[in-house]
Amino acid sequence: MTTETVHGRIGAARDDLTTAQLLAVFAFAAALSFALLFLQEPLIHDSMHNFRHAAGVVCH
């Protein structure tokens, strides 16, 4: 299968990796973005206060 089309790339990824591996990758990215961008738990949120201002993401 050619890997020079978007469909080809999706097919190649399916052949190369198990569903569990793909899930692990996406879960890791989701967890990291949740912690950095959306977690509102006060202690963690506030300790990232300067970062959130500097990166221009939604803050308090």
Partner: peptide, 9 residues
């Protein structure tokens, strides 16, 4: 805050 912000970066 300063240390965690650097780590977050």
């Amino acid at each position: 805050t300063a240390a965690v912000s650097v780590g977050s970066g």
